[in-house]
Design a protein around this nucleic acid. Sequence first.
DNA 1: GTTAGGG
DNA 2: CCCTAAC
Length: 616
Amino acid sequence: MVSKKRLRYGGFDAFRGPVVPKAPRSIRRNSHKKSSAGSEICPFELLAAVAGKLLQESEGSASSTGPQQKEEIIISKDIIKQELLEVKLKRSEDLDQRYCAESQFIPEPSNLELQLEPPLKDLLHSDNDSGIEHASIVTTSDFLKEVTTNVKLESPDSKNGNLCDANMDTNIPKLHTEPVEKQTEDLLDKVNHSVLNKQYSSVHVPFYSDPVPSASFLRHRGNNVKIGVRDDDENSFSCNHHTTKMKAFRLQSRSGYRRIRRMLTSKYWKTAPKLKDYEQLSNRKNTYKRERCQKRKLFHHSSKPEYVEETSSGSISNSPERHPSKRVKFSIKSFKVPELYLEMPETSTVGSLKRTVMEALMAIIGGELHVGVLLQGKKVRDDNITLQQTGISLNSDTLGFMLEPTLPQPCQSPVQEQPPMSPPECDNHQPLSTSPDSPITDVGFSNSSPDSPPETQLDNEIEKRKEELVADTKAIVPIQSMNPEILSIVPLNQKLNKRSELSQRRTRRPFSVSEVEALVEAVETLGTGRWRDVKIRAFDDANHRTYVDLKDKWKTLVHTASISPQQRRGEPVPQDLLDRVLAAHAFWSQHQSKQHGKHQSEPVQTVGTPVKVCLE
DNA sequence: GTTAGGG
DNA sequence: CCCTAAC
């Protein structure tokens, strides 16, 4: 049997060595920070930056080549490579060693990068109608290695070993200042306008090959080419056109999964470079929340707007003259495109690759493009409220933008049918082949209704199947690796990638009143320190409610009960229940529930009237 | 594996 | 809900 850990490592433990040193966390944490912070992300940042410059510089000579052949290749193997040499030194060695055996497949190392220029405006079907002037593609040797060999291993450092950066930055110089009262709608217009009007010079789309291509991500599109776009965070994966449903999946059993995920998401793995503090901040704390809000968004904000002149608190400058209103300055550094997934035969020509990439991009951004505004991770949906009202004027450091292609995006149902990554069944049994007609709605993410399913059984099933999944997944890898005909291109975002694969947050499932009642009842009798017992007693059959959940729920119930009804959110809990909550809470906290231990069966509905439940 | 708390 | 420290 393959252990879960093995799975996690793609069964290449031998290559990896201990992931986390058996040392005190504090030590591990520190060492990790220092060692990886610089070597993991930076290279990619650097790559992007360097490549960007290079390409920009080469723009002059690489201008449009014609109406039809608007594509153009730029192979600059050495330049970028050089730039990265220093940074990647160590890693490169590792990789080279690893791939040594397979390197013969690599005709020749080259750096790959994709650049779109001018703007997407053309693709956007915006006001303008010109076409893309050209797209350049460059690959790195590593990239090719990965591609041609379909590497399936990922070492601690190969988290980044996944090669290229995966974001598409569309640099936008700067946006104008806006009156604070300006409505968000206006802001959006501004942004959109800027985006659509060549105000940025290039678009970068670095890719990386997916170390463990998920069958579910594959879509056939025309001949052999597969294209898809995966939402970077939620594992949600959107495909263009004929794509059908794709569901992400969980690989491990809940416990194992959680354990692994804990490892992956723990700060020990966090390696965001210092330079990206802003990102780290939001990443660490908001990624879940923020990005969660972006489900189904093909584009997500990459960089928060930066204040051009002042700090967050002083970001507002007065414009005495014309507008009495304060003005907020926005400087949108760039936008990022989510993961892009492509597959095509090795025999494909570079030209076709370019076309494919373009098609994929077109598919993504081909429709009308909108800009979404994210404030503190939450999407600001109301276009009519003012910046002031949203708090953007004061808080723009938590502001984000995202490009929203107009793909059929069902979503938006507050609740979801199924946990995003959950039902392994889906993936397991809906392999590569897909019916082009399948509704896109099923794509990856899920929608599950809170009170959805007879989860009890479902969960069990899932649990069972996880074992199978392990095997299946493992099997998939080798197959891929042995099939050099498949070219995988997947933009990368390691952290997100990791998270998306293994750190999927559970789907939110609000407690129903009946659940609350059951919880209250159980706590009344058992006390507040025996959550496991509470679980067994009242939620034994609810696999999705862990005792920790119950404990948390109780915590919120106590809080809810102590605030005014107006401040409460969600499905209202009957006041009488809340009263019982308070009573039980008071009772048990006063009676040190812990020590009440064992088996008092006395229903404490009389909690209010102190009882001598204490036995013993 | 559980608890208890902070986030 | 997540993440962790402490048991």
